[in-house]
Design a binder for these strands. Structure first.
Lengths: 323, 323
DNA sequence: TTGTAAGCGTTATCAG
DNA sequence: CTGATAACGCTTACAA
C-alpha cells in the first residue's frame, strides 16, 4: 500500500495525500475522501521513504555497556520515556563492557544515520573524544564527564567525599575501599579520589593493603573483599565503588564469624533496591539515574529540534542514604 | 557522500560500486580503485536507501514492559547479543507495564517496517492474539505461552509446583503466598496454580487469609507481607511470585521481633543476584532468562532469514535454588 | 489549493 | 564482467 494507491482511491494527487498526512493545504472535501481511503485500506506511510527524502529519521541511537545493571536499566528507562513521549524511536546496542565496541556502534549509528546518539559512558578514550568532535550527529554522553561533548553526569567525587567524611566521622575507623579500574573516570577515578579526599579530611590515609580493585560484578567484589578480610582482622568498614561490589562484600562477610560479621559495615554506591530492602541495609549513595536518562534525552532532542548550540555539561547531585 | 560520487572518483559506474559493496562481479582492477575511493572519502552507504530499495531493514523491534527489572534486563541482554552477532539492529520500546501500549508499539513496528518483533509479554489479550495472527511481520512472544504465535517461555507452573512441594515437604508448615494479577498468565496464573498444586500434594490447602495480591514492586510486596504477618502470628514461610516481591516481604520481616524474624523463611522466583548475595539468601527459582532472550532472537532470525514456517512453542526449564 | 515532476541513495534488470 | 536506467515511496518546489 503506497501513497499513490491512496491518491487514486481518493481521486486526488499523491501530493495532496502527503499534505494531508503532514498538515498542509487540503480542502475539507478532499480531506474527507483521503481519510476514508486510508481508513479502508489501513495504509501507513513508509518511514524509510520519508527518511530518505527528509533526512529526518526520528531515531536515537543508544549505546550501553549492558542492561542487566539496575543503574543502567534505570537510565535506559528514563531515556525511553522521553523518546516515546516525543515520538522518537530508540535504537539500542549493548557492548558487554567492551569499550572498542562503543566506537564501532557509534560509527554505525552516525552512518545509519540516526538523528542523535546517547552514549552511556564507561571508558572515554582519546578515540572517543575525537569521534565526539567530528561526529556528524549530535551526541550526549551520560554518566561521564567530558569536555568534548555535551554530557549529563553524577557528582561522583562529591558524593564519595561526603560519604567518606560521614563514615570516618566520629572515632577513627579502620576503613577499606574496593574500587574499579581508573579507566572508568566516574566510577573508578572520581569515586576513589573523592573517597580518599574525604578520609584525608578526617585525618585518615587509605593504606595500600586496605585497597582492592574489582570488576563490575558481585563475584569479583566477593573475591576482593575476601582477600582484604583475610589479611586484616580488625576492619570496621568496607566501602565499595558500586552496590554490586558491595553485594559481593556482604557475601564474603557472611562467611566470617558472627561477632565479626556484625561489626563490619559495608557501603556502596547506587542505592540498589534489593540491598535496601533486605538484611540490614547498607549506607549507599543515591544517584538520580532515571533523571539523568531523562535529562540526557531532553538535551539531545533539544539540540536536534531546536538546534541549540550552547555546550552543556550537566552535573546531577546525590543523596547519601545512611543506615 | 553517495555511491555516485564514489563511482566518479573510481571512474566506474555506480552499479559497479554497488556490486563491490555487495559481493558481485567486479574486476580486480576496478575493485582496487573503488576500495581506494571509499578509503579516501570514508564513504558509508545509506542504510535508508538500501532499505527502501530492498525492503530488508535488518531491524528487530523489541517491546518490553520496563528495563529496570533484573529478569527483563537479562532477557534484553540475550536478545541484543544475538542481534549484534547477526548484524541486526534492535529497536526498543518500553511500555511501563501498560499493556495497551504493547499493541500500539507492535503496530508501529509492523508499519515501520521492522523485519520481526519480539514481545516480552505480560498480559496477552484477545487483541494481542488477533494481532499475532494478522501481523505482516513475524513475531516471537517471550515469557508467556500463546498458541497464536511462536513463543519462548519458562516452566512457571512446574517450577512453582516443585518449589511448593519442597518447602511443604517434611513437617506441615504454615505457608503464605503473595502473587500477582492473574491477567499475567505466566507470573500470576501459572506460578500460583503450580504452587497451590504443589501444596495440595503435600496435603495443604492455601487458605484465603494467607494469600496476598501484589504489584510488581518491592513496596507493594512489603505491604502485602506486612498485612499477612500482622494477622497471622505463626507463619513459617512467605512465598512470593517474584524476587522483587520477596524483597518487600523481607523488608516487612525486618520489622518483626527477632525470634519471629528468624523463624519465617521467604521464597521467590528469579534468582536475583542481590538477594542471593546478601543476608541469609532465600530459596528461589532460577529461570534461564538470558537464554530465553537468545533463543527468542535466534528463532526470530531463523524465520526471517530461512523462512521457517513450523510453529514453535519452546518451554525452558528451571532450577530450584534452595537455601 | 492543487497537481506535476524532480529528486533522496540504493539495488536490480537487462542489454552490451 | 560492465554500465545505463528504472524503480523503491515519499516530500517539496514550482507552476497552475
Amino acid at each position: 500500500m503506497t501513497i499513490k494507491e491512496i491518491a487514486q482511491l481518493a481521486q486526488v494527487s499523491s501530493a495532496a495525500v502527503s499534505r494531508y498526512l503532514n498538515g498542509g493545504y487540503v480542502s475539507e472535501e478532499k480531506k474527507e475522501r483521503i481519510r476514508e481511503a486510508i481508513e479502508k485500506t489501513g495504509y501507513h506511510p513508509s518511514a524509510q521513504a520519508r527518511i530518505l527524502r527528509t533526512k529526518k529519521a526520528r531515531l536515537i541511537g543508544v549505546v550501553a555497556p549492558k542492561l542487566s545493571s539496575e543503574s543502567i536499566a534505570r537510565v535506559a528507562d528514563g531515556i525511553g520515556e522521553v523518546l516515546a513521549e516525543k515520538q522518537f524511536q530508540m535504537l539500542l546496542t549493548v557492548t558487554n563492557n567492551r569499550s572498542e565496541k562503543e566506537l564501532e556502534y557509534m560509527r554505525l549509528f552516525e552512518n545509519y544515520p540516526v538523528d542523535g546518539i546517547i552514549l552511556i559512558g564507561t571508558v572515554i578514550s582519546k578515540k572517543h573524544e575525537k569521534f565526539f568532535e567530528q561526529s556528524k550527529v549530535p551526541i550526549v554522553v551520560l554518566g561521564q564527564y567530558t569536555d568534548k561533548a555535551n554530557c549529563v553526569y553524577h557528582d561522583d567525587y562529591g558524593a564519595a567525599k561526603d560519604l567518606a567524611g560521614r563514615i570516618a566521622g566520629k572515632e577513627k575507623k579502620k576503613i577499606a575501599y574496593i574500587g574499579v579500574t581508573r579507566d572508568d573516570r566516574a566510577v573508578g577515578q572520581e569515586r576513589e579520589d573523592g573517597f580518599r579526599a574525604g578520609l584525608l579530611e578526617a585525618g585518615i590515609v587509605l593504606p595500600e593493603e586496605l585497597y582492592g580493585l574489582s570488576e563490575f560484578s558481585v563475584e569479583s567484589g566477593y573475591r576482593q573483599a575476601k582477600a582484604i578480610l583475610e589479611k586484616n582482622s580488625d576492619i570496621d568498614i568496607i566501602s565499595c565503588a558500586t552496590d554490586t561490589i558491595a553485594a559481593g562484600a556482604m557475601e564474603a562477610l557472611k562467611e566470617c564469624k558472627k561477632e565479626r560479621r556484625e561489626k563490619v559495615k559495608v557501603t556502596g554506591f547506587g542505592d540498589n533496591q534489593f540491598l535496601k530492602a533486605v538484611s540490614e541495609g547498607i549506607t549507599t549513595v543515591h544517584f538520580y539515574y532515571k533523571t539523568s536518562g531523562i535529562k540526557a534525552a531532553e538535551m539531545l532532542l533539544d539540540i536536534i529540534e531546536e538546534g541549540h548550540q550552547v555546550p552543556i555539561r550537566m552535573k546531577l547531585g546525590y543523596q547519601i542514604m545512611e543506615h
